[in-house]
Simulated scan of single mutants.
Amino acid sequence: MLPIILRRLALSVPLLLIVSAITFLLESFVPGNPARTLLGLNATQQQYDALRAALHLDQPVIAQYGLYLRGMLHGDFGTSLFTDEPVLGLIGQRLPVTLALVIGGTGLAGLVGVLLGVFSATRGRFSRRLVDIVSLLGGALPNFWIALLLVALFAVKFAIFPATGYTPFADSPGQWASGLVLPVVALSIGGVAFIAKVTRDAMLSTLALDHIRTLRACGIGPSSIIWKHALRGCGLPVVTTFGLTMITFIPGTILIENVFTLPGLGTTVVNATNQHDLPVVQGVAITFTVMVIVVNLLVDVLYGLLNPKVRTE
């Protein structure tokens, strides 16, 4: 199992370099000039040229990327052009919000999706059609529409949960949890539908296997067959779905955080893009990439736990 993890980590290094290069190149095409934005319209041309030289904006894009890459390899991701705050410090402040959304959304989607999938696989055609309908709606309805609907119902009409804002866990665990309910639900809807459908199909295939029939013939109870044997048998596709769902939620937090005004990496990268704050955009892009790599590693580890053959490959 360890060689597989080491091989995945080795492959992640060129991935990080490719992501950083593409992000740097794309950001260079975004309209706007950070030097002009920082100085305002009343600055002289001399001041403008001096700031461009200080920020290395007067150099070619390749040269700018080379300077950034050299600093990144030494653990220096630069500072924000507008707040003069170290990028790593800024990411460290905003990352817990995004992680709470991603982990909470994946956990909720996984719990509800697996329960719904198992229910539909064991309760007949009507429940299966219901899952198909839920999957279709969950995949078709955009997250921002679901988020606005949740705000209108549970924050405005009934005033159960706050519509916007974020309270750190250390300040008030109750308010922290309350403020994350609507964002997590809005983020997880599509994942619930996806996981439910995959679980249902995998469970139906597993329940039709010969060893499951043998367990029934031996008098093993239905609940034991479903939860101890069949669910473990369809673990690989379900784990794969969990990983794909979690990876999808990582960029999905950008929209959710902006709808609910949460101070996470999503709102940070949007503001940085509007301001042409390249070091912050780069830092967030690399952080998202690292999160995807970590999720893939976790999926590989779970593969090894569920299927011992994977450990010897």
Rank of each mutant, 00 (worst) to 15 (best):
I293L: 10
G266H: 07
G264Y: 07
I293Q: 03
V295D: 02
P279H: 14
H276L: 13
T289P: 09
V284H: 07
T289G: 12
V292D: 08
G283Q: 13
Q282D: 05
N296F: 11
T267N: 12
G283T: 13
V292P: 08
D300V: 03
Q275Y: 10
N274L: 15
T289L: 13
N296S: 15
G283S: 11
N271V: 05
G283M: 11
F288Q: 08
Q282L: 14
N271G: 09
L298F: 14
A285V: 02
P263A: 00
T273Q: 13
G266I: 06
T287V: 09
Q282Y: 01
N271H: 11
Q282W: 05
T267I: 00
V281S: 03
P279M: 11
H276I: 13
I293F: 14
V294C: 13
I293V: 15
Q282N: 15
M291I: 02
L298N: 03
T273C: 06
G266K: 06
I286V: 15
T289H: 10
N271Y: 04
F288I: 05
V290D: 07
V280C: 10
G266W: 05
H276F: 10
N274F: 13
D300S: 05
A285S: 14
L297F: 07
L278C: 09
L298P: 01
V269K: 06
V284T: 09
L278Y: 15
L298G: 02
L265S: 09
V299P: 01
P263K: 00
H276M: 09
Q282V: 01
L265T: 03
P263E: 00
L278S: 14
V280E: 04
G266P: 06
I293A: 13
V295C: 07
V292M: 10
M291F: 08
A272P: 07
T273A: 15
L297V: 15
T268W: 00
G283V: 09
P279C: 13
V281R: 03
V281K: 04
T273R: 12
Q275R: 12
T268A: 14
M291E: 01
T287Y: 05
P263N: 00
I293N: 05
Q275W: 08
N271I: 04
P279G: 08
L297S: 04
D300F: 03
T289Q: 10
V270D: 01
G264T: 04
V294M: 08
G264E: 07
I293P: 09
Q282A: 04
